[in-house]
């Protein structure tokens, strides 16, 4: 369960601080998907990057963040165990799919290297992409890329997922297909998911509209 409390995000412009928005409390339960909607510049991505633990130099942010009851506000990105899937990237372009999959598992998995390999291959097989094992990400199609990127994030055993416009680079035909597959997989694994988008078609689960300074949940 992911919980955000008393969050206040301000944008710093020189000595001035401009309030972007504040949020009293937001809880994302097990297997639940919460969609934050709103126009560009409202602070959706900033919220997501703060949850991830990225240092944000031009912002002043106050708030508490807990994951499964544990306060993780002071933890580094590596310690938070949050998976991410952003609009661009997700797979390291200079590593093969195999290397990407193994790289994602190494820090947290207790499995032996061969078992890690088998686990990744099994997941790839369910997608029918096991023949892409040795290729580089640039040879994947848009849909294949998005699926393998999510798969790598899941191999890192996240306790919650953060998605920032994850489908916006896909063409219309693929988009719905990948969207359904992604949410089904996340719900099946009971992973709390926070999704940020400006496109209603991408939304899923509980929807929260971000407009103005106060966000009502």
């Amino acid at each position: 369960m992911l919980n955000i409390r008393d969050l206040k995000i301000e944008l710093l412009r020189g000595d001035q601080a401009e309030l972007l928005f504040q949020l009293d409390e937001l809880t994302v339960g097990k297997g639940e998907v919460v969609t934050l909607m709103g126009p560009s510049g409202v602070g959706k991505s900033t919220l997501l990057r703060w949850v991830l633990g990225e240092p944000l130099v031009n912002f002043r942010i106050q708030g508490q963040l807990s994951l499964n009851g544990e306060d993780i506000s002071g933890k580094s990105i590596a310690q938070r165990q949050l998976g991410m899937m952003f609009q661009k990237g997700g797979l390291f372009p200079h590593l093969t799919i195999e290397e990407n999959c193994l790289f994602a598992q190494k820090p947290r998995s207790n499995l032996h290297r061969i078992e890690q390999k088998e686990r990744a291959l099994t997941m790839l097989k369910t997608l029918g992409l096991d023949d892409k094992w040795a290729v580089y990400p640039d040879s994947l199609s848009g849909g294949q890329y998005a699926r393998v990127a999510l798969l790598c994030s899941l191999l890192a055993e996240p306790q919650a997922m953060l998605l920032d416009e994850p489908f916006s680079s896909l063409d219309a035909g693929l988009r719905e297909d990948v969207r359904q597959w992604t949410f089904a997989l996340l719900q099946e694994r009971e992973i709390p998911t926070l999704l940020v988008t400006h496109d209603i078609a991408d939304a899923c689960g509980r929807e929260i509209e971000m407009r103005g300074e106060n966000v009502n949940v």
Binding site: L52, E54, A78, Q81, M84, A156
Partner: peptide, 16 residues
């Protein structure tokens, strides 16, 4: 895109 690579790798559990 070094900064996003670093963030991505950190989300897997690596230190910076």
């Amino acid at each position: 895109p070094v900064k996003s690579w670093l963030v991505q790798a950190q989300s897997y559990g690596y230190s910076e």
